[in-house]
């Protein structure tokens, strides 16, 4: 399955992903209409700022294979979809106990204030590319299979090594 992969070195902290996420999960799916909606649409991706590194890092659900949230959820509101392998959430089953939030290693299970239920990334059903990835102006977010993403990383690492082999090479 494709995952939202993060290249934190490219993140400028513009929060475009957060807004796009909230708009995608609004009633109207339009920015100009979504700002007036009640309840306010909720984002499911978070830009975390690390002051000591002056770095912004997008953090979102990793859709873990052995997801602790699905294991601890007492009502089965959080579960894994068999075919897509996505970790999905059914708000109608959610009792708002926040056990999932306690065990999530990434802190990406948020709270829908008005309905008092959990909200998390659903990888934008019906979209080819999740809204956050599409909105990212610097491609800090990439929607790719892990093997492809790792392939790119390997190529980058190999390039660095190759440069080391031939000093001064303009490769």
């Amino acid at each position: 399955m494709k995952e939202v992969m993060v290249r934190p070195e490219r993140c400028m902290g513009c929060r475009s992903c957060e807004i796009a996420c909230a708009v995608e999960h609004s009633e109207s799916k339009s920015l100009f209409a979504a700002v007036g909606e009640s309840p306010s649409p909720r984002k499911r991706i978070y830009i975390e700022y690390i002051p000591e590194h002056a770095a912004s890092v997008p953090v979102t659900c990793r859709h873990c294979e052995d997801a602790p949230c699905t294991t601890v959820c007492p009502t089965g509101a959080l579960s894994r979809e068999e075919i897509s392998r996505k970790v999905v959430h059914s708000p109608e089953l959610c009792i708002g106990c926040w056990t999932c939030s306690m065990v999530c290693n990434y802190g990406v299970i948020g709270r829908q204030k008005e309905a008092r239920v959990a909200v998390k990334c659903d990888l934008c059903p019906g979209r080819e590319v999740p809204a956050c990835v599409e909105a990212c102006p610097t491609n800090a977010l990439v929607y790719a299979e892990v093997k492809d993403f790792s392939g790119i990383k390997r190529a980058e690492a190999a390039l660095k090594l190759a440069r080391g082999m031939k000093p001064g090479s303009a490769l």
């Binding site: 513009c14 475009s16 807004i19 796009a20 708009v23 920015l31 100009f32 599409e134 909105a135």
Partner: peptide, 8 residues
């Protein structure tokens, strides 16, 4: 997509 903050 154009910047949402700018558009608003």
């Amino acid at each position: 997509p154009q910047c949402s903050f700018g558009q608003l």
